[in-house]
Design a protein around this nucleic acid. Structure first.
Lengths: 226, 226
DNA sequence: TAATGCATACTTCCATACAAGTAAACATAT
DNA sequence: ATATGTTTACTTGTATGGAAGTATGCATTA
């Protein structure tokens, strides 16, 4: 692992280390199967082992790392069954949420959603897939907020992060153009005030992963476990 | 907090402390708002502060505790919005799962579900609400397994634990008899092979909380935050 | 009486030292 | 050549001491 920027010593170190490592894992800078060492990471941040150790514990609790006593700490490989479960949960939950939104949607919301889709197209044209992943997060979060269930998002966020590891690692395997068109279909359903149509569009959208997954796992089998 | 049974010193201390504290929180032995101290808990278990501290971090990551730097560590009060979100997610997900099960259900599964309901009635007659909460866990988990999505349960389990804190703390506020009859309706839907009927029964069942919640929060407002 | 300053007893946080387990390289014996 | 035992360099786990921040009670002051 390369040198890292120093942390801010005026506030607690452990949470900062946790967040930095978490981002590195989600972006694929730290790859599934990579080994971490408390002392090595501590040396790179210029702090002692203890706060690093606490960050490891937090990551393990998130399912992003695995601490094997007296052996080492490893970045967890992407669990295919966990990804499939996350997808199923998102389909069920966001399917219900979008029905609620369909009963609420006002012109202001529709305008903001259209604006988000416009930005997604710009990210596509710029070929910036990292930016698209971030905008996709915002789009889905905006819908959860519009349904009046912001706190549902904290759960969905954890699930989405597992799926985002896939996206970042093998970004080009996903047809971003198709995903954007599916976003359009969802918003069209809302615009028509048709809850069932919006729900079906959302479910189709979240089913897309099932089409893409086989290719990804075939190309990079070393990143996955069943 | 009273004296605790000593931990097993032949294996790592921190995970044991974590699990013991977690159970105490879910069962209400440690009440929302209670204060914990690294040194105090360490003394009771007969170990040093460090493993206790690591257990606190893990609990905080689960949303069961809150570490306030230089102030203390507190058992988190039950967040009403978090409970409502958990309920909404469970309704959406278990509604989809039960539809899958309705297409799969064989005689053996129906027999095992009937058996579970029989045990639930025994727990009711014995007035053992702790046992009922445990059996209720098993019932819902059995349905997730039958849908072929065991790993969905690891997510639902975390959500259910938040709701179970409610149950344990104010057990008598819940009409266990009614909950069992709702279980029966779900299984009847499966037996009829009627996916829609099973789903509606499941959704009604998970909506029950909305009826019970106001009374609970009125009786014990000090345990909750919005 | 009310407000302010201070001492004191907490709290979490970090650094450090040591304990105990693991794994791999290497020497030795068969 | 193969198998076995040993050394050595790691790994995580625990204990402990001190640093820094916070709250509280008490004395002092206006």
């Amino acid at each position: 692992m390369s040198e890292l920027q120093a942390i801010d010593l005026t506030v607690s170190a452990a949470p900062q280390v946790y967040e930095r490592l978490r981002q590195a894992i989600l972006r694929g800078t730290l790859a599934p199967g990579d080994r971490l060492s408390e002392s090595e990471v501590a040396r790179q941040f210029g702090i002692s082992r203890q706060p690093v150790r606490e960050a490891f514990i937090h990551l393990a609790s998130d399912g992003l790392a695995e601490v094997r006593p007296q052996r080492g700490t490893y970045i967890r490989k992407i669990s295919i069954s966990a990804v499939l479960s996350a997808r199923l949960i998102r389909e069920a939950v966001e399917g219900d949420l979008i029905r609620i939104v369909a009963g609420n949607a006002d012109a202001e919301l529709l305008r903001r959603l259209d604006e988000e889709i416009r930005r997604q197209r710009l990210a596509l044209e710029a070929g910036d897939s990292d930016l698209f992943v971030e905008l996709d997060d915002r789009f889905h979060r905006m819908l959860a907020d519009a349904a009046g269930h912001e706190s549902v998002w904290t759960v969905l966020e954890g699930l989405k992060s597992q799926m985002n590891r896939l996206r970042h690692i093998t970004a080009k395997a996903f047809d971003i153009r198709k995903l954007i068109e599916q976003h359009v279909e969802i918003v069209d359903g809302l615009r028509a005030g048709d809850a069932t149509r919006a729900e079906q569009a959302m479910r189709r959208h979240l089913n897309q992963l099932l089409d893409d997954l086989p290719e990804v796992t075939r190309d990079r089998p070393e990143l996955f476990i069943p």
